[in-house]
Simulated assay, not measured.
Amino acid sequence: MIEVEGVSKAFTVRKRTGRGIRRARTTVQAVREVSFAVEHGEFVGYLGPNGAGKSTTIKMLTGILTPSSGRVRVCGLDPSRQRTALARRIGVVFGQRTTLWWDLPLRDSLTLIRRLYRVEAGAHRARLAELTGLLELEPFLDTPVRQLSLGQRMRGDLAAALLHDPELLVLDEPTIGLDVVSKATVREFLERLNSERGTTILLTTHDLGDIERLCRRVLIIDHGRLAYDGELDRLRETVEPDRVLVVELARPGPPIALPEVEVVAADGPRQWLRLPHAANAAAVVAALAGRYDVRDIALREADIEEVVARLYRGDHAYERPGRPVVP
Results as ranks from 00 to 15, higher is better:
2 I>H: 12
9 K>I: 00
10 A>Q: 12
11 F>M: 11
15 K>V: 12
18 G>L: 14
26 T>Q: 15
26 T>C: 06
33 E>Q: 15
38 V>M: 14
45 G>T: 04
54 K>W: 08
66 T>P: 00
70 G>I: 07
73 R>T: 05
82 Q>D: 10
87 A>S: 12
89 R>S: 10
99 T>Q: 15
108 D>N: 10
109 S>W: 01
110 L>E: 12
111 T>H: 15
112 L>F: 15
125 R>T: 05
127 R>W: 10
130 E>Y: 15
133 G>T: 12
141 L>Q: 08
142 D>Y: 08
154 M>P: 09
156 G>L: 03
169 L>V: 11
171 L>P: 12
172 D>I: 03
179 D>R: 09
182 S>N: 15
192 R>G: 04
192 R>K: 12
193 L>H: 12
194 N>F: 08
195 S>I: 13
199 T>C: 11
200 T>K: 10
204 T>P: 02
205 T>M: 04
211 I>C: 00
223 H>S: 06
232 L>Q: 03
239 V>R: 02
245 L>Y: 09
249 L>D: 14
250 A>L: 13
256 I>M: 07
266 A>Y: 04
271 Q>K: 07
272 W>T: 06
275 L>W: 06
279 A>M: 09
285 V>T: 07
285 V>N: 02
288 L>S: 07
291 R>V: 01
296 D>F: 03
303 D>H: 01
306 E>A: 14
318 Y>N: 00
324 P>A: 14
